[in-house]
């Protein structure tokens, strides 16, 4: 019942989120044939002051168009779209989970129902998580089809693997936002706190020497490009003994924040 209520509350936002993701994906794919020659000619991307921008330039301007196209998708579909839209989506959908109930004075009513707080958290969380994660897979699956329209190929397995990583990152942000939503009384405060943390992380990412300390380092071109190129097997995403296992770390972080949210909710007094 709580899950149904949550879904009714977020369904239009979830649809808007799906549409925005798709609208961002389609032009970057369809315009590729026009953009690729420009990227090959560009010297700006090849000689920047920052190494990571140079790697992007080398990738998208590669003489092998298949390599260049996958690099292009890594940067535009994943580094840009999912990082930007999924973070915003997780914050927008997550802020209201509990803080909105407090603002509307419905939280006391909900907590007084004969249902455990763990169940309340779970039934609010899973529809939101599904609403955030499923569009990532749908839009990236559609990118495979759009790519075929311009006679390019995006490999299914690699694209889904990259989508899996993007989904883990989105779940991490959702879990963080859920925790803050339990702690804060006002929805705007939740958005302000999580938004500030995200902006700080972006700032750190864009600062050369401290860049490795940014969360966005786990979801940038250096991670998505090898994933889409097929150079990172599934095991490297999840097994710390085989590779960096960034996907596992993101899921572990998400679990930690959900646990913190559950503990905070158990202690919450309306």
């Amino acid at each position: 019942m709580i899950a149904g209520k949550t879904w009714r509350e977020i369904r239009w936002m979830a649809l808007a989120y799906l549409v925005v993701l798709e609208l961002l994906a389609v032009p970057v794919i369809l315009l590729w044939p026009d953009i690729y020659p420009d990227l090959q000619r560009s010297t700006l991307l090849r000689n920047p002051g920052m190494d990571w921008v140079k790697r992007i330039g080398d990738g998208v301007g590669n003489r092998d168009e298949d390599v260049a196209y996958r690099a292009w998708c890594a940067i535009m579909l994943f580094f840009r779209s999912t990082n930007l839209v999924c973070t915003a989506g997780a914050v927008l959908l997550g802020t209201g989970l509990f803080a909105r109930e407090r603002e509307a004075q419905t939280l006391e009513f909900l907590l007084a129902r004969p249902v455990s707080r763990g169940r309340i958290l779970w039934q609010k969380t899973w529809p939101t998580a599904v609403a955030l994660v499923v569009p990532i897979f749908l839009v990236n699956a559609s990118a495979i089809w759009w790519s075929s329209r311009i006679e390019m190929e995006l490999p299914f397995a690699e694209t889904m693997r990259a989508s899996m990583h993007a989904a883990a990152f989105t779940l991490f942000f959702l879990a963080t936002t859920t925790w803050v939503s339990v702690k804060c009384r006002v929805q705007a405060h939740v958005a302000a706190w999580v938004g500030a943390a995200a902006v700080l992380q972006i700032g750190v990412y864009l600062t050369q020497r401290i860049r490795p300390y940014s969360l966005f380092r786990l979801v940038d071109f250096d991670w998505y490009a090898p994933l889409l190129a097929g150079n990172l097997p599934l095991r490297h995403m999840f097994d710390p003994t085989a590779g960096p296992a960034f996907t596992s770390w993101l899921l572990l972080g998400a679990s930690a924040f959900w646990f913190a949210a559950w503990r905070a909710l158990r202690r919450l007094e309306p």
């Binding site: 209520k5 109930e101 509307a104 004075q105 419905t106 939280l107 009513f109 004969p114 249902v115």
Partner: peptide, 18 residues
């Protein structure tokens, strides 16, 4: 949880889902 199964509580600040 068991207490809430056997009681029914009306909060003073009644919030209903608009």
């Amino acid at each position: 949880l068991e207490v809430r199964h056997r009681t029914s509580y009306l909060p003073g600040e009644t919030g209903v889902y608009l």
